[in-house]
């Protein structure tokens, strides 16, 4: 059963790696959705409105 080996390999992931991954996700969402820098705002304008982040 391949499922069993998969389960074992996935559980191996250490907490530091998980936190780092989550932090990277937060950074990307912040840059695309929340950063006030006007260049980022202009580039992301339509995307922010469409995804319903507060924009203006």
């Amino acid at each position: 059963m391949t499922t069993v080996t998969q389960t074992t390999s996935r559980v191996d992931t250490d907490v530091a790696g998980i936190l780092l991954t989550a932090f990277a996700g937060l950074v990307l969402v912040f840059l695309a959705g929340f950063a006030h820098a006007s260049v980022l705002h202009d580039v992301a304008h339509d995307s922010r409105h469409a995804i319903a982040f507060p924009c203006h």
Partner: peptide, 23 residues
């Protein structure tokens, strides 16, 4: 481009959730 960035960010958070659930 910004949708790709945003959804990759959401995906990183979700997969981190997968790993926590698996633990």
């Amino acid at each position: 481009a910004m949708d790709l960035v945003t959804y990759t960010g959401f995906a990183l958070l979700m997969v981190a959730g997968f790993a926590l659930a698996a633990r």
